[in-house]
Amino acid sequence: SPSSPVVLPPFFMRGSIIQLADGELKRVEDLKTEDFIQSAEISSELKIDSSTVERIDSGQSPNAVLIQFSVGELKAQVCVEVLVEYPFFVFGQGWSSCCPDRTTQLFELSCAKLCVGDVCVSLTLRGLR
C-alpha cells in the first residue's frame, strides 16, 4: 500500500540552509536543477532519476493526494501519498506542489502547480537495478 502521507519537514521553510554535495550552502528557495544534478554526480551512493507525474488522485487521508510516478529509464511505477502542500522539485521549473498556495502559506516558499506530465527530481541508490 502507498506510504502514509509525509509530515512536512522543516527544511522546506523559506530561508532554510541546504548543504550541497560539494559543501556549498544555499537557501532552499535559491536551489536550481543543476544543484541537484551536480550533487548527485559528486555523490558515490546516490543517483538522480527523472520521475514523471502520470496521475494525481485524491488520497485516502484528509488533505492528501495519491501521486503516481513513472520512475527512471525503466519507467517503474511508484505511487506515493503526500499532503497536497508537499513540494517536489520539477526539472527546469523548481518547487511545485498540488496546492501551491498552501505551500507558500505554510513555508513562504514560492511554488508552482504540480501537473500530470511534470518531470520531478528523485533519487535512487546507485547500483540498484
Partner: peptide, 25 residues
C-alpha cells in the same frame, strides 16, 4: 552581547524523494 544561535543545515538529498519501485502497489 548576542547569544550564538546554531542554524540547522540540511543535506541536499533530504529534499527530494527516494522513489524505489518497491514503493508501488
Amino acid at each position: 552581547n548576542v547569544e550564538p544561535r546554531s542554524v540547522p543545515v540540511f543535506p541536499w538529498h533530504s529534499l527530494v524523494p527516494f522513489l524505489e519501485p518497491s514503493q508501488s502497489g
